[in-house]
Design a protein around this nucleic acid. Structure first.
Length: 444
RNA sequence: GGCCCCAUCGUCUAGCCUGGUCUAGGACGAAUGGUUCUCAGCCAUUAAACACCGGUUCAAAUCCGGUUGGGGCUACCA
């Protein structure tokens, strides 16, 4: 059975690159009917923080990468020491005194006392080769690798050692991780061999680059998954985008449901070229998902954004809210856009775009607005069709082009130049609010 | 510096393994036009790539070698 793992370190938030690695591991496990194991690499006690751990677990749950088992390296220090002891006994490792600078640099004597001899692995010069599921055969000459620290002088295990001990103990048979670990692989294989443990298959995923071609960093855009959640991206959209970064379902398909992806995914089809993170395409995909989302579910997803931007919709019925969401659904790039774009549907002190006002309301529309308000108030079936007819009749009477009145009315009612069709806006706003807003522009 | 990885439109990619069907397909973005109401929505059109050099072959984006360029690693971080 396939057993894969994702091994984040709680020394920072879950970022884009990490979640893509998690996605490919998770997908592969689900595609193969295997297990997806989460291993928290919190051996660096000083840098590991609870808030980071919480954020990582939270983000993984949000994107839906459910794990079958979870382990914490900080609870397994005894195991690493025992294994190191074995290597020592076999003469494959040796002890070395703690680094002078380390002891001297210790905060106080108590800390210095805790320092003990480190355990170092003897690297023997040889050719190590492995078959990478994505890259094919890779060969290293270990002559260029220094002896490796197994247990540091503070008693905690070094990364490459804890990783091997755990992958073996947890029966991980496919190690799927970032390209940056390729050069760690020969070091780890040496340890597997010294321990007489079966070497797993490796698959090294290309890195995700920022716009500047370098590593994705805060400078080149948001990196934490939780940031994207806050910016108003749907988890399905983010996952779909991440999936397209290094893998393609073929057949010119861009939008792919996760269940369909599970059926089609194979780690062997992953690309080997680094990909640049492109916000524009993410936005487009997010819009594709928002557009086709169930309106009721969208309403729930929108809640935190309404709250955050202080847009109170409680005074309106559920049906009204859903209608308004439907009106905007097709043009939303992110959920965050909604409160900003639809504010006029829920309050009278909506934001007025000064440029729009300047462009369309600089001349006096008292006569037109007053007439239109009166006509609308008298409309009996007040529906989209009759509203449009009423408006167009008025245009004919006044001898105006539709655009000459539509834009001013839109700005007066919504404060914006962009938005849903005007007649729909009129219908959902209702007679009372429409005439109040129009008459506000009428000079007495 | 040493070692390793990578190389198709600006970006994500299809094609590469199993050379000919590729005057290289799709998507994002861009530009242009349309949408008897706006666009950041919708529709249409256009521009846009096989890094370079050599080899193998009747034939190379596809196979091989080199060059160049980019990236990673080179910690008692993970």
């Amino acid at each position: 059975m396939v057993r894969v793992r994702f091994a984040p370190s709680p020394t920072g938030f879950l970022h884009i690159g990490g979640s893509r690695t998690a996605l490919f591991n998770w997908l592969y496990a689900r595609a193969q009917g295997g297990k997806f194991i989460l291993r928290i690499e919190d051996t660096d006690v000083k840098r590991s923080k609870q808030e980071y751990l919480d954020e990582i677990l939270d983000s993984l749950s949000w994107v839906g990468f459910n794990w079958d088992e979870i382990y914490y390296q900080s609870k397994r220090f005894e195991i690493y020491r025992e294994v190191a002891e074995r290597l020592l006994k076999d003469g494959k490792a040796y002890r070395a005194s703690p680094l002078e600078t380390d002891v001297e640099g210790a905060e106080d004597d108590a800390e210095a006392d805790k320092k003990q001899e480190a355990v170092i692995f003897k690297v023997i010069q040889q050719k190590v080769s492995f078959k990478d599921l994505i890259h094919g055969d890779i060969v290293f000459d270990t002559g260029v690798i220094k002896d490796q620290v197994l247990i540091k002088s503070d008693g905690t295990p070094a990364y490459n050692f804890a990783c091997v001990v755990d992958d073996a103990a947890m029966n991980i048979n496919h190690v799927i991780r970032g390209d940056d670990h390729i050069s760690n692989t020969p070091k780890q294989i040496l340890i597997y061999q010294a321990l007489n443990l079966p070497v797993p298959d490796f698959a090294h995923l290309p890195l995700i680059l920022g716009k500047d071609g370098g590593r994705l960093s805060k400078r080149t855009g948001a990196t934490a998954i939780s940031d994207y959640r806050r910016m108003g991206y749907l988890p399905e959209a983010l996952v779909n985008y991440l999936l397209l970064l290094g893998w393609s379902p073929g057949g010119n398909q861009e939008i792919i449901d996760i269940r369909e992806a599970i059926k089609k995914f194979d780690i062997k089809d992953a690309n080997k070229t680094a990909a640049t993170f492109d916000m524009d395409k993410l936005n487009w995909i997010n819009n594709q998902y928002i557009k086709t989302a169930d309106t009721l579910e969208l309403a729930a997803a929108l809640e935190p954004f309404l709250k955050e931007q202080n847009l109170d919709v409680s005074g309106f019925g559920k049906d009204y809210l859903l209608s308004v969401i439907k009106l905007f659904q097709g043009r939303l790039g992110t959920l965050k856009d909604f409160p900003a774009w639809a504010d006029f549907m829920f309050k009278d002190d909506f934001v007025i775009d000064e440029q729009a006002k300047e462009k369309h309301l600089s001349r006096d529309f008292s006569r037109e607005f007053k007439l239109f308000a009166e006509r609308l108030n008298a409309l009996d079936p007040f529906d989209i069709v009759t509203i449009e007819k009423c408006f167009r009749d008025l245009l004919t009477e006044l001898g105006l082009q539709s655009r000459e009145l539509i834009h001013p009315v839109r700005v007066a009612l919504t404060g914006k130049t962009i938005g849903p069709g005007l007649f729909e806006v009129l219908y959902y706003l209702g007679k009372e609010r429409v005439s109040r807003r129009l008459l506000a522009w009428v000079k007495q």
